[in-house]
């Protein structure tokens, strides 16, 4: 399999307000030296809690947020080095679906125009061809042709997400960045959209960069998963290995925190692994491992030296004391 996107040491910094006029401007490192590879036709999931840098990583990788360093090789070209016009041409290969289908569609435009707009901007095909493409995509995502001239508010949340997907597909992209595409939807509707995304991946050979906080969803959709914590990847690997034999205590904590049908109150369940507290602030990250304060395995070295992401048998782990959950 060929590598579609190869992200190396991606770093994103945001400027903070100056504490005083003469002081140097402090910065916050939202993404710290993140590297991952996405193979063509595969889905890579980025999981983590709010503020962990999932969205910022994806946005920096497709140059919608400015990266402070690193490389993003997309079919061999470094996206971060391209000039504006070359990048504009590249954008047809990379499209986005957002979390909230209510705010990501223009309420004053008819959906047929919303879906056609990327082709107008990219000057793809004749007007007739564009219209035919919109009709084709409508059928592909499960909308009816008689709905073409309606406005976004006349659709339900799930249908609006279908419209977003149709719009994203107009330029025949190779990569679809899905930023929490189902978290604003009801569970019954989530399943419809997840099945649609799985179908499209198969039919069109799409690759997904799939951002979600929901581990169940990620397990269902993704081939590979990267777990982020405070701007860094703490564990990554094939979905099956990561879910069945997680090595990092944070991954294990995430898995045991997710509500599960397998744990019953009637059976007197005990959550196998608990973490207390909240993630630390990225403004002043701890010198060692960011998870050390909440980690049941933390030793002195964890608070002093940040661990590197080291490839292992199943997954790559950034932890001084990796191992199965029951060794804690």
């Amino acid at each position: 399999m060929s590598v579609l996107m190869d992200v190396r040491d991606l770093t994103v910094r945001f400027a903070l307000p100056k504490p005083s006029f003469f002081a140097e401007r402090p910065h916050l490192e939202a993404v710290r030296q993140v590297s991952f590879q996405l193979e063509a036709g595969k889905a890579l999931g980025i999981v983590g809690e709010s503020g962990s840098g999932k969205t910022t990583t994806a946005m920096a990788a497709i140059r919608l947020t400015k990266a402070a360093g690193g490389q993003v090789l997309f079919e061999g070209d470094d996206l971060l080095e391209l000039d504006d016009e070359a990048m504009r041409q590249r954008r047809r290969d990379v499209q986005l679906i957002f979390q909230d289908p209510y705010s990501s569609l223009n309420p004053r435009a008819r959906v047929v125009d919303i879906v056609r707009e990327p082709m107008d901007l990219m000057e793809i095909g004749t007007p007739e061809e564009r219209h035919a493409k919109v009709e084709e995509l409508f059928a592909l995502v499960g909308l009816r042709p008689d709905q073409l001239n309606l406005f976004p508010h006349q659709f339900s949340g799930g249908q609006r997400q279908r419209i977003s997907i149709a719009r994203a597909l107009t330029t025949n992209p190779k990569l679809l960045v899905c930023d929490e595409p189902v978290s604003a939807l009801d569970v019954a509707i989530q399943a419809q959209i997840l099945n649609l995304l799985a179908e499209l991946k198969e039919k069109l050979g799409l690759s997904y960069l799939f951002i979600s906080h929901d581990l169940g969803v990620v397990r269902h959709v993704c081939d590979e998963v990267a777990v982020m914590y405070l701007g860094k990847i703490v564990e990554s690997g094939p979905t099956s290995a990561l879910f069945e034999a997680p090595q990092h205590p944070y991954t294990q904590a995430l898995l045991s925190a997710a509500p599960s049908l397998a744990r019953r109150k009637s059976k007197g369940y005990v959550r196998p692994l608990k973490v207390s507290g909240d993630p630390p602030s990225p403004i002043n990250p701890p010198p060692g491992c960011a998870f050390a304060e909440r980690c049941p395995r933390a030793q002195d070295v964890c608070r002093k030296t940040p661990p590197d992401l080291v490839p292992g048998a199943g997954t790559a782990v950034a932890c001084h004391y990796p191992g199965p959950a029951d060794t804690i």
């Binding site: 019954a188 399943a191 099945n195 879910f243 997710a258």
Partner: peptide, 24 residues
């Protein structure tokens, strides 16, 4: 039944999720 089956549950590798068609 649909509400339970449509959850992409951990520890279950269904290829396709059961879905409830339509909306409320």
């Amino acid at each position: 039944r649909g509400l339970i089956d449509c959850i992409p549950a951990l520890g279950r590798d269904d290829h396709r999720l059961a879905e409830i068609p339509g909306v409320v």
